[in-house]
Design a protein around this nucleic acid. Structure first.
Lengths: 269, 269
DNA sequence: CGCAGTTTTGATAACTCTCAAAGTTAGTGG
DNA sequence: CCACTAACTTTGAGAGTTATCAAAACTGCG
C-alpha cells in the first residue's frame, strides 16, 4: 500500500511553487495569529483555526490536507470541505470577522498565512488580485451548490461515487494519479461530509468493489472502471451523471501565489 | 388571506431606499445585459439571468422575491436560494465569467443592476465596498454551510421547521410580521430546496399544524408557537436547535446601496 | 361551471439508519 | 518480538423515515 502524500511542489509541475510560497510567507511580518513563520507545519488533528477565532488572515494550504467543519449548538458537526494543496482557507471569516468554521489537518501539513492588513493593501493595489479572490470565493459557492444538489437529489451510492470522482480529479489536477490514491480522511469524515452514516459508507464501498468499479483497501482507493463509476446507480439503470463537487482551485491559487510572490515571479519557467 | 408583498421601501424602515436604489440604477449607463433601466420590473416566472449567460453585472433585488437554481446534466434541478429584497444576486458568476445558476422571480419583482465595469471601478476606489462585497459573499458561503448541515444532519421535519423560522426572521428583519407571512414559493420549491418530496412537505406542514405549532392556509403561514417550532422534532424529545439558514444580508445591502448612491446618501435621515 | 394546476391524503415500498458484534490495524509497553 | 489495547472498519438484522404511486380535494380562473 503506497501512502501518497499530497505536495504542492508538484502543483502544475511547477518546481518553483515551493519557492514562491516561501517568498509569500517571508513577506509576512504582521501578526497573523497562528502562522508567523514561513510555511508553518501542522500535524494530524491540529487546528489551523477554530470557529469563533478572530479572523486575522487567509491561508494557503501548501502541503497535506485538511477538513473544515461547522458545529451546531448541540455539538453536532458538519464537515463542509476537504482541502488539498493550493486551496485557500479562511474566506468564511469575512462575514462577521470571526471564523465560522474550524479547520483541522488530516495529516502532517503545511500552510502559508496571508495577514489581513497585507491582503487589504494588496487588494487596493491590484485589480487582478481582487478578481482572483472574488473568483475563488465564487468558485467555493458553486462547489457548495453542487454539494447541495448531491445531498438533496442523489442516492447515497451516487453521492459516494461522485465524491470519489471528485477526489480523483483533484488529485489529477495536482499531478497525482487519478486512478490510485490514498484517502487522508476517515470513513466517519466521508460519511459526515456526504450526509450518511459510517456503516452506509462502508457497505457502499464494498458494493462498488464487488461490482469491480473500484478496489478498496483501507484508505487506498483504486478506480478500475471510471466509466461505470460515473454512471453507476443503485439500479444500474439511470444515467445519472451528476454534478461533481470540489473541483480544483488551481487558477485562483496561481494568481494569489503569483501576486504575493513579487520578484519571485520572474524565476518561473 | 392577506397577500403580503415584500417591498424594499420598508427595508429598515427607510423610505429613501427606493430613492437610493434609483440613484444607483440611473448611474448605470453601460450594457448590463438584462436591466438597462432603473429598477427593471419582472413578473412571476421570468428570469433575471440563466445558467450559462455571460456574467455582466450584479443585481440587487429591490422588491418581490426570486429563487436561484442549478441544473444537472440530466435536467434535474436544485434550488440553491430564495431571495428577498436587499439581497445581492449574481456573485456566483465571478467563477468562470458565466452564471452557474438561473434566477427566476416568484412574483412581480424589481431589481437593480450594477454593471461589472462600474463595480470594478468602484471596488478599486473604495476599501469599504471591497470589504462589503467580500462580507456578502462570505455570508452566502456560511449560509450554504448551514444549509448543508440542515440537509445532512436533520430530519425532514426539523429542516422544514428551520426553513419556516428562517423565513420568519428574514421577514422580520425587513419590517414585516415574523408570525404571519405569505410564501411566494410553491410546495414544490420548498421540497426541492429542502431535499424532500412535495408530499412530505405537505404532510409535515399538516403535522405541525395538528400540533398547534403553526397554522397553514395554502401559502399563508402563521406561527402560533415559536418556542415549540424551534424545539420540535419528530419525537418531540430532542432539543435540536439547529442552524437556521438564509439569514438576512441587510448589512451588505446597506453598504452596497450607500456606496452606489453617492449624493443621494445625504438625503438619508 | 368546469378545467388546469396545485395541494392533500392514503397505502405501500425502498433506502438508509440504528443497534449490535465481529474483524482489522496501528501503536504501546513488557 | 509479541501480547494487548484503542481506534477504526466491516458485517448483520431489524426498524424507521421518507419516497413512490395513486387518487381525491381544493383553488383560481376563463
Amino acid at each position: 500500500m503506497i501512502r501518497q502524500s499530497v505536495n504542492a511542489c508538484r502543483v502544475h509541475g511547477m518546481p518553483n511553487t515551493s519557492c514562491m510560497m516561501s517568498e509569500l510567507c517571508l513577506a509576512q511580518r504582521e501578526d497573523c495569529g497562528v502562522a508567523k513563520n514561513a510555511r508553518q507545519v501542522f500535524h494530524r488533528g491540529e487546528s489551523l483555526y477554530r470557529s469563533g477565532d478572530d479572523f486575522k488572515a487567509l491561508y494557503v494550504l501548501y502541503s497535506g490536507s485538511a477538513k473544515s467543519l461547522i458545529l451546531s449548538e448541540d455539538g453536532d458537526q458538519q464537515i463542509t470541505e476537504f482541502y488539498m494543496p493550493g486551496d485557500i482557507l479562511g474566506v468564511e471569516g469575512f462575514d462577521i470577522g470571526q471564523h465560522s468554521c474550524s479547520v483541522e489537518f488530516l495529516e502532517t501539513s503545511s500552510a502559508c498565512c496571508i495577514a489581513l492588513p497585507q491582503l487589504d493593501k494588496a487588494l487596493g493595489e491590484s485589480a487582478e488580485l481582487r478578481r482572483s479572490l472574488l473568483k475563488s470565493m465564487s468558485h467555493s459557492l458553486n462547489n457548495e451548490h453542487a454539494m447541495l444538489f448531491n445531498v438533496c437529489q442523489l442516492s447515497a451510492e451516487r453521492r459516494l461515487a461522485n465524491f470519489i470522482i471528485s477526489l480523483s480529479e483533484r488529485f489529477q489536477s495536482r499531478g497525482f494519479s487519478a486512478f490510485n490514491f490514498y484517502l487522508s480522511m476517515s470513513r466517519n469524515d466521508i460519511a459526515n461530509y456526504l450526509g450518511m452514516k459510517i456503516e452506509t459508507v462502508s457497505r457502499l464501498l464494498t458494493r462498488l468493489q464487488q461490482r469491480n468499479v473500484i478496489r478498496v483497501n483501507r484508505r487506498q482507493i483504486q478506480i478500475t472502471d471510471l466509466e461505470r463509476l460515473r454512471d453507476c446507480s443503485d439500479t444500474e439503470l439511470e444515467n445519472n451523471r451528476a454534478v461533481r463537487t470540489q473541483q480544483c482551485q488551481q487558477v485562483e491559487f496561481n494568481t494569489m501565489t503569483q501576486f504575493f510572490s513579487g520578484e519571485a515571479r520572474s524565476s518561473l519557467d
